[in-house]
């Protein structure tokens, strides 16, 4: 069985016939050559596949492509606007919030979710906000610093 769906990925509309079993993350990685969304585990633990579905963070390895029908998906590639890095991207860069970079797209989008729901988080809230995203390189500390800086920058921008 194939099921017709339409999605918007980073502002671009797509129509596809997909197998119901296809995971959203596989659809995203197959659609338009945007491979920033990563797969790090198979049990919804690591968060490397985090994307925004209608602005809300989800783990795209734990969603079927058919479930995303009619939604607008934002991946790491869609976060920067008009050639301007998103304050989170800028802050991860400034604060050395990444090393190998594999967890980074998901981590940034998880941080995006945190700041969407809590624009002024404490360090403890940042740590809890990122509890579903694993990084094996940084020990998280510079990620916490980056999110703190991004939160301040985003508040300044309003």
């Amino acid at each position: 069985m194939k099921f017709p769906i339409s999605v918007t990925l980073n502002g671009r509309p797509y129509r596809r016939e997909v197998e119901p079993r296809q995971l959203l993350v596989h659809l995203i990685r197959d659609l338009g050559g945007v491979t920033g969304t990563k797969i790090g585990c198979d049990t919804s633990q690591c968060g490397a596949c985090t994307v925004l579905l209608d602005g809300v963070a989800i783990k795209s390895c734990t969603a079927l492509a058919v479930q995303a029908d009619g939604t607008s998906i934002t991946t790491i590639e869609g976060l920067a606007g008009d050639g301007q890095l998103h304050p989170l991207q800028e802050a991860f860069w400034n604060k050395h919030g990444l090393q190998c970079g594999y967890c980074t797209p998901g981590m940034i989008l998880a941080a995006h979710e945190l700041l969407r729901t809590n624009p002024q988080p404490s360090d403890d809230q940042i740590r809890h906000g990122l509890e579903g995203n694993m990084c094996r390189c940084t020990g998280y500390q510079n990620i916490i610093r980056a999110v703190r800086e991004a939160a301040a920058a985003m508040r300044r921008k309003g």
Binding site: S44, G47, T50, V56, A57, I58, K59, T62, A63, A110, E113, L114, T117, G129, E131, G132, N133
Partner: peptide
């Protein structure tokens, strides 16, 4: 779970 899991 975590925030992304709770969203779904």
């Amino acid at each position: 779970g975590d925030p992304a899991v709770r969203n779904r």
